[in-house]
Design a binder for these strands. Structure first.
Lengths: 134, 134
DNA sequence: CTTGACCCTGTAGCTGCTACAGACACTAGA
DNA sequence: TCTAGTGTCTGTAGCAGCTACAGGGTCAAG
């Protein structure tokens, strides 16, 4: 029972356009076609797309996904290579978390500076403005 | 002492192309020109661009920056409106932090699942693969 | 035999820049 | 005065990772 692109999309929570996009950039192989020129998919493609989506959900870039798929396609399961990509990504995530945390703290400070009452001057605007010592 | 676009860029840590981009999308007003058709800037523009950059550093979108500038340009300092935008952004940041934290936890779990040794099968690939109950 | 849901290709749009190409302006040194 | 090297100008195209059309073809149900 071959799947249409719509079926595949539903099964993997992916928009049809995105499936075609993945095909275009070479993440998914060109599928076989029905008599009416419809793309037809099977369990293999379903697995591959699930893999891609899961990796994307975990924040891997498409390039990283491509690399993971390449290593995974290797008969030899290059666990070290995969571990390297995953850990690299983890470090990236940690950097982003740190950045975002710092940003939040600063943003909060700016907002709180305005909290004091109904002064005529807006402290947020002031806080966002150019620094005096520039 | 009018500033060239390069001076302005250096003073605000902004690339020249970015300054022109901000002008094109209407964040910065069209500046006056020198005899040689060079853009010339003064303290007002410097202040405005500093404001934009600071807001961008704090993660505000260009649309939000536009709104903040609009409210700030209002003679009446609409502190409530500004506070609303800033707090909305803060909530966004908190959402992102939560998402990223959850992502990190899951990513860590996937990586750790592979940590046990030199098994023939890669647990990362497995963990990324399709769920059985799908 | 028509309606509606799906599919096809190709292209343009989104955010927030960044990077050219090809031409003109200006400054410092020979 | 010439020249080299920097800056600036406009316009356009590119990046990620999709998303959204337009303008058509296909297929199943009633």
């Amino acid at each position: 029972m071959p799947l249409t692109i719509g079926d595949l999309g539903k099964a993997t929570n992916t928009k049809v356009e995105t499936v075609r996009y993945y095909e275009r950039i070479g993440l998914l192989p060109k599928p076989s076609r029905s008599t009416g020129n419809y793309r037809t998919y099977g369990a293999t493609e379903l697995g591959r797309l699930s893999f891609i989506r899961r990796a994307r959900d975990l924040g891997f870039s498409l390039d990283q996904v491509r690399a993971l798929l390449g290593l995974s396609d290797d008969g030899t399961c290059d666990c070290a290579g995969i571990d390297r990509i995953a850990n690299e990504h983890l470090r990236e995530v940690d950097r982003k978390l740190a950045d975002l945390t710092a940003l939040r703290r600063e943003l909060k400070a700016v907002i709180d500076s305005c909290d004091g009452g109904t002064v005529a001057e807006c402290r947020i605007i002031e806080a966002l403005g150019p620094t005096i010592d520039g």
